[in-house]
Structure formats: structure tokens, C-alpha cells
Simulated assay, not measured.
Amino acid sequence: MTARRTRDEGRVSLFLAVTMLGVLMIIGVAYDGAGQLRTLQRADDLAAEAARSGGQVIDRAAAIEGRPKVIDESGARAAVAQYLGDNADVTGYRVTFPVVADEKQITVRVTVVYRRHMLGLFGMDRTVTVSGTATARALTDRP
């Protein structure tokens, strides 16, 4: 007995190929979108923790003399650098000291890079830079 061969044996239909490409793109958007969102949350968390560690460094001499507690800028920068230096994800950061209502605060902006795993296969940029910002202040005796 001989087997009969059909015309489309061993071929993939054009509809199936296009549909699978679309499904892979949707999965890629969901996967890399969630990863980018997690990276954004990580950047916010790192900025908050760095600002908190910098905000704990106060001018001790002023506090001992009974004057209002003020953030020591050089000590705060060192504390932020030390905290963020332990995190390999951070590609850059910026520290500023805004004054709000006669009170010096510390603001930290952290930059983190997310590497796309699936969407890079479809020609999109392989990396996305996200940033997080947080502000902290020294606790004072004022209400």
C-alpha cells in the first residue's frame, strides 16, 4: 500500500505563523511590562531608603546646642553614596537639598536600567532607563 501525499503536508499556514507572532508579542509586552514596572518600584524603594539614610545624618553640634535639627549635607551625601554603592542595579543618582517651609530636606533621584528579555527580540530597545525619586526630612521637635 502506498500512502497518498496531500499538497499542504509539512507546511505551516500563513495564518498560524502570523497569529503565533502576535501571541508572542502580547506575551512579550506583558512580561517585559511587568518587569519594567518592578524595576520602577525598585528604583522608588532605593530612592526612599537612600533619602532616609541621608536624612538621618544631622548636624550634631547644632542639635546638642538645642538648635533645630538640620541635615548635614556632606554627611548625608556620604550616607547616600554608601547605601547606593551596595546596590549593583543603580546606574546613577542625584542628591539635592531643597528648603521647604524653612526646613532643609533631602531629595534623592535614582536611575536604574531594565533589560528587556522578549521585546528586544522584536526590534525594540534592549534596555529601558527608569528613575525613582524620594524626599526625606530630619525629625524636628516642631509640631
Rank of each mutant, 00 (worst) to 15 (best):
D59V: 15
P68Y: 00
T6N: 07
R60D: 07
L121H: 10
D125H: 08
D59N: 06
V23P: 13
Q36V: 02
L21Q: 03
T133Y: 01
R38I: 04
A62F: 11
G66S: 12
L40G: 06
N87K: 08
V95H: 01
V70I: 03
A138E: 02
A138H: 00
Y114Q: 05
Q41W: 01
A76Y: 03
S74W: 12
I27H: 00
A63P: 04
V57R: 11
V57Y: 05
D72L: 06
Q41D: 04
G33S: 10
R4L: 11
G132K: 00
Q41G: 09
G66M: 13
Q36W: 02
M1V: 13
G132S: 00
M20T: 00
F122T: 01
V12Q: 12
D89K: 02
V128W: 01
V108N: 11
V112T: 05
P143V: 13
D141G: 11
D59W: 07
V95T: 15
G92E: 05
L119D: 13
V23A: 04
L24H: 03
I27Q: 09
M20K: 01
T2F: 12
A43I: 14
G35L: 02
G55P: 06
R115P: 08
Q56G: 15
T19L: 01
E73W: 07
T19M: 09
Y83D: 02
G22F: 07
T6S: 12
R67S: 12
I106H: 15
G54C: 07
V99S: 01
Q82H: 12
L139V: 06
V95N: 10
R77N: 03
T127G: 03
T133F: 03
G33I: 15
E65N: 13
T107N: 05
S13F: 02
A134Y: 01
L46R: 02
A17F: 05
E103Q: 13
V112W: 04
A48E: 01
R60M: 09
G28V: 05
H117F: 15
